[in-house]
């Protein structure tokens, strides 16, 4: 085994041994399970009788001085003069074809933020504990150490998301097969959803590595996470608002678009018109942050 693979092995084990990772993974597996269980329990089609109130129209007219009258829809003190009832078909079934894509896209964003937290703290905790100095007594090639850690964060974040999304998909499929709808879930659909899961996992990997790189620069978990949030919530929207030149070129919005499949258009991110572009922009920023953090790690004196 080469030196890098040995390091990577150790770093991946370090990643999964962390209590934060284990707790978040447990929560990430339990919460969707509970949600899907509730949805499955409620999954049904039923006819509901709904009462509709019919208001007496004359109660809602007011005569004006000139003899005309004005109609007030839904007038406040009107009382129902008549009640009618109608039978409505309420479909609460899990429809895996529609619901799974939404669930993956929604969960992808959440998993992306978890990856940020884990990626930043993976390095931040080691800087805080000064345990890097001990590791460098075993492998003094800092670039190797840095790369192994960054790859471990990327792989760990991707596997974390993959596990959660795969479980979510299986549970949703199971719920739909049992008490919902699975019609339309053909091979193309399966391929598309596998693609969604892989994309969301890739977004988590990029987010984790971006946060890891930012921590290499900021040297604190809190600073890196706060910086990530500030970028996404304040800096990028402000830049988009002021300079069109940044449209589709900033990291957090690109990551968000990549994780949630939100492209340009209604509710989407300006300037990001394809997932390929979103992923590429996010990857470039993650690589840049890793490179900058790596250079600082190689140059800084270790305590």
């Amino acid at each position: 085994m080469t030196a890098f693979l040995r390091l990577l092995d150790a770093e991946i084990r370090r990643y999964w041994a962390r209590r934060l990772v284990r707790v978040l993974l447990l929560l990430s597996l339990v919460v969707p399970t509970v949600v899907v269980a509730v949805l499955t329990a409620r999954s049904s089609v039923k006819n509901e009788t709904r009462e509709t109130f019919v208001y007496s129209e004359e109660d809602c007219f007011e005569e004006l001085p000139d003899g005309s009258s004005v109609y007030f829809p839904g007038c406040g003190d009107a009382t129902p003069s008549e009640t009618t009832s109608e039978v409505v078909r309420v479909d609460q079934r899990i429809d895996v074809v529609d619901d799974l894509a939404d669930a993956v896209n929604g969960s992808g964003t959440t998993l992306m933020f978890l990856a940020v937290l884990i990626g930043a703290s993976f390095l931040g905790a080691e800087i805080g504990a000064a345990s890097l100095s001990t590791q460098l007594l075993y492998e003094p090639r800092r670039t190797l150490v840095w790369t192994a850690k960054a790859v471990a964060v990327g792989l760990g974040s991707a596997l974390f998301s993959l596990a959660v999304l795969a479980l979510l998909a299986l549970e949703l499929w199971g719920g739909a097969a049992w008490r919902g709808v699975v019609e339309g879930a053909d091979a193309d659909w399966v391929v598309a959803r596998v693609g969604d899961v892989l994309r969301a996992s890739g977004a988590a990997a990029l987010a984790g590595m971006l946060a890891f790189g930012i921590t290499g620069i900021a040297r604190r978990t809190v600073a890196a996470v706060a910086g990530f949030l500030a970028l996404g919530m304040i800096v990028e929207p402000a830049l988009y608002g002021i300079f069109n030149v940044f449209d589709g070129r900033l990291p957090i919005s690109a990551l968000f678009a990549f994780a949630s499949n939100s492209l340009s258009g209604e509710g989407g991110i300006d300037g990001i018109d394809s997932l390929l572009r979103a992923g590429t922009v996010a990857a470039i920023w993650a690589a840049g942050a890793l490179a900058a953090g790596g250079v600082l790690f190689a140059r800084r004196e270790v305590r």
Binding site: R6, D9, A10, R13, R14, A17, R18, A130, L132, Y138
Partner: peptide
């Protein structure tokens, strides 16, 4: 300096794996 959240054994075990 070791990772405080890990046991002494795990800290050494990870170092051993790295080499």
């Amino acid at each position: 300096s070791f990772f405080p959240g890990f046991s002494g054994h795990r800290n050494l075990s990870l170092l051993a794996r790295a080499r």
